[in-house]
Write a protein that binds this DNA or RNA. Structure first.
Lengths: 213, 213
DNA sequence: TCTGTTACTTAACGCTGTTAAGTAAACCTC
DNA sequence: GAGGTTTACTTAACAGCGTTAAGTAACAGA
């Protein structure tokens, strides 16, 4: 615990302060309100200082989202203990929608914004990024259901079925995030309700033996 | 046909040239590549000239999208002649997804980007904007199906059911637009295929008498 | 011919993300 | 302990953005 450790600990500390400031602005005012200058001002540094901790703005926000998405990964892990793969799917869907609706800014950045093509496993976690990992969990669960013969016979491709299910819940939350409520003439229903309805529809539409309503 | 008409015709002409230039950049390089300065350069005007035809960038692109979305409205109108509301729903879903996949930039701007709160029927068309109108068509068709007792008894709210169906197809195309193919580790299926699968799932999940596969 | 409107340009403002160059302190080595 | 290197940060600037105030030159109508 010489001065070397202290230095790198201090470095990590300002790094965290940058992330925390960015998070606050990010969730409060949305992604377009996050400017490097304002993040810097909030922590009383110059904008340039941030570039010693993050390659650019994209990388900063990406890391922020990745960190915060670990919450979803943990929720998935807990769900993973449920035996019945179909019940597991249902719970995964609910957890996913809950997370999206509670972190709309994060969700928007991760799943509603095209990335400028990140250089393929840009940092440490390799292909363990939360989104890819989350898809892997979904796909595995779907595959388990297929193997158990729980789905209708036309669903043989785990990727296709997983993507249909993902699209269903993604559709609900993304439409809600971008159009929900506000000035629209459309009378938007409670997303938790339509979300549950969607999940029911997806299940009844894909399962061989429909569960009792 | 005095010089007065000629003047306003000329005005309309440069207005169209702005829209055409913007459209070209918009579909080719995506929304973030559209800068006022480059649009102006392409038609050999100064950036300021554009502001004599459009309030700001948002209004320009909005009008562009609205114009181009008339193609979808026309497709919906043709479909409207089909008698069976369920078959009509299916066709509406297919037309919607086709349009989205053929005009990803337009779609992204219209349904995947939060608007800075347009001042409620900002110009002429009032609440006849294509997106609201398209939803009205969908909702009416759903309501017709409900009235005919075609859906499962738990679906009584036309808005809720319409939003579930819309979310289903929106989920497919929006996920495809933002994540499709590219560098991902996920093995993405052909969106036309997953789209059809989604439509089948939605129908089987909502209809009282499931159609033959 | 005069007057007012119209379509456009020039020049600028304030903002953005980003970077080259400089500084001052802390560290390691001799 | 002196010298040199590394580190964390600042200063100052660049190029680009959307947007606007003010000016200009051509044209329309009286």
């Amino acid at each position: 615990m010489g001065p070397r450790e202290r230095r790198s600990r201090e470095r990590e500390e300002t790094r965290s302060r940058i992330l925390d400031a960015a998070r606050e602005m990010f969730v409060q005012d949305g992604i377009e309100a996050v400017t490097m200058r304002e993040i810097a001002k909030r922590i009383e540094y110059t904008p340039t200082a941030i570039y010693h901790h993050f390659r650019d703005k994209q990388a900063l926000i990406e890391e922020l989202c990745l960190i915060d998405f670990r919450g979803l990964a943990q929720a998935f892990q807990k769900i993973g203990r449920i035996e019945d793969p179909i019940e597991r799917l249902r719970r995964i869907g609910l957890a996913y929608m809950d997370y999206a609706l509670e972190h709309p800014s994060h969700y928007r950045f991760m799943f509603m914004t095209p990335k400028p093509l990140l250089p393929a496993s840009s940092f440490g976690i390799s292909d363990g990024e939360p989104d890819t990992h989350a898809y892997a969990v979904l796909r595995a669960t779907v595959a388990e259901g297929i193997a158990q013969g729980r789905f209708r016979p036309e669903f043989t491709d785990a990727d296709e079925l997983a993507q249909v299910l993902w699209s269903g819940v993604h559709g609900i939350v993304s439409l809600q995030i971008v159009k929900g409520g506000k000035g629209e003439h459309i009378c938007w229903c409670d997303p938790r309700e339509t979300g549950r309805a969607m999940l029911d529809v997806l299940m009844r539409g894909t399962l061989r033996t429909p569960t009792a309503a």
